[in-house]
Nucleic acid binder design. Structure first.
Lengths: 330, 330
DNA sequence: GCGCCATCTGCACTCGTGTGCACAATAGGA
DNA sequence: TCCTATTGTGCACACGAGTGCAGATGGCGC
């Protein structure tokens, strides 16, 4: 199984110099004479030599690996975040270790892996890590960044969208537009983040003297929206729906239009959350709350640049913005 | 910068045993007495000890890392592949090193990284790796798997969708349905894979005595389709369009319907390629050629299981299937 | 010609782990 | 009681690279 990679010693032999010389050739800012450097580079080229990152980071004890822990990688909003995050990391000469925590795979086991790889930081996009896990991370001096997750214990960096405000914006927008019989649709196993959005919506509605129906079900994807639409419309009691995710909203929207033959936005108004690309397409033109990925990414970047020994976790809040399109009345 | 991680020596000290004992407790199937194991586990737990994968794989010289090189991670079809691939790898206790080769980042530089990390294999989803790069990989004894890329030189594993057949299927389908003034729409910087799809389409059309217009432009995403629709319809010369990607097709479809006010499928028929989730939504109901991700993933899995010393690259062909929906006449 | 300085090279140690080999300890049988 | 078989432990080396320190080499000025 062991594939004999070329080592610096072999290169040194071939170039007729010491191993140190080889090492120095590949270390910027070290004493090597031009002739030796030339010989080493030639030999390295001929033999196909590559530095062994594993050995290097073992010695210098700093890894250029950053782990991203996520599930449902194919969902547009998550994919967009991963794309942006890994691009940002690459620009900083860091590598992305992608951990897919989907399906039945054990989050705890994944976290163990993270710790074993001595990564520079873990970015958690998914799952609700238990208190115990976060404790483990801290005990192992592992920098941890939570995105849109809640965590009681301090010392972890948290980046959160301003979910409550988002929910409130959605409510006010709908009420202004004349929708009165409101409902919120969420996935059954939803995240704290989605719960806060719903909360904000309910709060703002209450301030206008309105109560809000709740619908919970499905896995928080397109199907949740579809099922919700079918059930909620049997009773004719709803004319304004806030979905805690764009994908839920698109399922709801399409089902209203194509299965139930409803006129959106005349008969029913729909607001989503995230502003994924598909929401902006004319086939949907979904009114939604935008959650700027760029802000999330730059928050992560700024955290990575702070001194890692400063373990007091900071909280970043990412602002939201309502994008009015055509699933609510003008 | 160096974060003092707990080492096996420290655990050994605390447990009052030798370092070897610690190592053996964490190596399944090694001689350790129950008492010692107990002591070691306790000490390890208290100190938060984790094996250092870097050091381990330095010694055993086998890494459990598999690199995936891709760009445009947020595109649905790519995101879906990455999701499925990383899940498959996780099931095999392998980790995913995600390399985002998007934007201006240099593919050559990324490949160097791959080599430096001594990964078990590289899966290339993106970019046309130059001959030189692949040579480098081979020289460094690096297992390389290309998905939907063409590569002249042998010794590389290639997984290819049956693009030509896909293109032919699309053409036959359209011709059967009575479309005669055909066109192909591709991105300007498209992949060999997309070129083969177009080829198959043109071939089959030629067999029916039809010539095909070509439109090339944009980056192969939604915008390509949008721009193509605007330009192609100024002349009224087209009634059947094959887009080499679902995203192009969706851009084309939406622009026809919402900007140009055309009736799809009555006035113009559209066929895509990939069968991404959005294509199946009733808001689009795109007729398309399905490319089964599961087949691609299991091909990768079977390659990973073959003996790595067998460097003769094999070619796998993934079959396609036409999914008739509502953007072509019934 | 001698001494000094600048410039480079090589030795040897280090990082954290796995493991072959020798040896200690213990139990069991004669 | 002594010998042997068994079982577990520790020593020491290996993996591949970076780097401080000492020593070698060469050039230059006196």
């Amino acid at each position: 199984m062991k594939r004999n990679f070329v080592t610096s010693a072999q290169v040194a032999d071939r170039a007729g110099v010491s191993r140190s010389a080889v090492s120095r050739t590949f270390t910027p800012g070290a004493y090597v004479s031009p002739e030796v450097r030339e010989k080493v580079l030639l030999a390295a080229e001929e033999m196909g030599y590559r530095i062994n990152r594993l050995a290097k980071s073992l010695l210098t004890s700093e890894s250029s690996l950053v782990a991203i822990l996520a599930s449902r990688l194919s969902e547009p909003f998550i994919a967009t975040q991963i794309d942006a995050l890994s691009a940002m990391l690459a620009d900083r000469e860091l590598q992305t270790l992608l951990l897919n925590s989907g399906a039945r795979r054990d989050i705890a086991a994944m976290m163990n892996l993270v710790l074993e790889y001595r990564v520079k930081a873990v970015i958690i996009l998914s799952g609700a890590p238990s208190e115990k896990l976060v404790e483990q991370c801290l005990k192992s001096r592992q920098r941890t960044i939570l995105i849109n997750r809640v965590q009681e214990s301090g010392n972890v960096d948290i980046i959160q969208t301003d979910d409550r405000t988002g929910g409130r914006l959605a409510a006010c927008h709908m009420i202004e537009r004349g929708y009165r019989r409101l409902a919120v649709v969420r996935g059954a196993s939803d995240t704290p983040s989605q719960r806060r959005r719903a909360q904000g919506f309910v709060e703002a509605a209450a301030e206008h003297g309105l109560t809000v129906r709740h619908w919970l079900g499905g896995d928080g994807g397109y199907e949740s929206g579809r099922d919700a639409a079918r059930e909620l419309r049997t009773s004719n009691a709803v004319d304004g729906v806030f979905c805690t995710t764009d994908r839920i909203a698109l399922g709801f929207l399409n089902t209203c239009r194509f299965d139930l033959g409803l006129d959106v936005p005349a008969e029913i108004g729909i607001v989503g959350f995230d502003d994924i690309e598909e929401a902006g397409w004319p086939s949907h033109a979904l009114t939604t709350i935008r959650q700027p990925v760029s802000a999330i990414v730059s928050a992560v970047a700024s955290i990575l640049e702070t001194d890692p020994s400063d373990i007091s976790g900071h909280a970043h809040v990412v602002p939201v913005e309502l994008i009015a399109r055509q699933t609510t009345r003008p």
